[in-house]
Amino acid sequence: YETDHQDYCEVCQQGGEIILCDTCPRAYHLVCLDPELDRAPEGKWSCPHCEKE
Score class of each variant (00 low, 15 high):
Y1M: 15
Y1E: 14
Y1K: 15
E2V: 06
E2I: 15
E2A: 05
E2K: 15
T3V: 10
T3E: 15
T3P: 09
D4K: 11
D4G: 12
H5W: 07
Q6H: 11
Q6R: 08
D7N: 12
D7R: 05
D7K: 10
Y8V: 13
Y8N: 13
Y8I: 15
Y8P: 15
Y8Q: 15
Y8C: 06
C9L: 01
C9A: 00
C9F: 00
C9P: 01
E10W: 13
E10P: 12
V11C: 14
V11Y: 13
V11I: 14
V11A: 08
V11R: 13
C12L: 00
C12W: 01
C12A: 01
Q13N: 09
Q13C: 10
Q13P: 01
Q13I: 06
Q14K: 06
Q14P: 00
Q14V: 08
Q14Y: 03
Q14T: 10
G15F: 15
G15H: 15
G15N: 10
G16Q: 05
G16A: 13
G16Y: 12
E17H: 00
E17Y: 11
E17I: 04
E17F: 07
E17V: 03
E17T: 12
I18R: 09
I18K: 08
I19C: 07
I19H: 09
L20G: 15
C21N: 00
C21Q: 01
D22Y: 08
T23W: 02
T23Q: 03
T23V: 07
T23Y: 12
T23A: 04
C24F: 00
C24Q: 00
C24W: 00
C24M: 00
P25Q: 03
P25F: 11
P25G: 06
P25V: 01
P25S: 09
R26D: 07
R26I: 03
R26E: 09
R26L: 14
A27T: 02
Y28R: 05
Y28M: 15
Y28P: 01
Y28S: 05
H29A: 01
H29P: 01
V31P: 03
V31T: 05
V31N: 04
C32T: 00
C32H: 07
C32Y: 01
L33M: 08
L33D: 01
L33F: 03
D34Q: 09
D34G: 08
P35F: 06
P35C: 09
P35L: 09
P35W: 07
P35M: 09
P35K: 07
P35R: 08
E36W: 03
E36A: 11
L37M: 11
L37H: 11
L37S: 05
L37I: 07
L37D: 06
L37C: 08
L37K: 09
D38T: 07
D38M: 03
R39Q: 07
R39W: 06
R39K: 11
A40L: 09
A40C: 04
P41V: 12
E42F: 05
G43V: 13
G43P: 13
G43K: 13
G43H: 09
K44H: 12
K44N: 03
K44L: 11
K44Y: 03
W45C: 07
W45R: 06
S46G: 11
S46C: 04
S46L: 11
S46D: 08
S46A: 10
C47D: 02
C47K: 00
C47F: 03
C47M: 02
C47H: 00
P48C: 06
P48R: 10
P48E: 10
P48N: 11
H49G: 11
H49P: 04
H49L: 08
H49T: 11
C50R: 02
C50E: 02
E51Y: 02
K52G: 08
K52M: 08
E53H: 03
E53D: 04
E53Q: 09
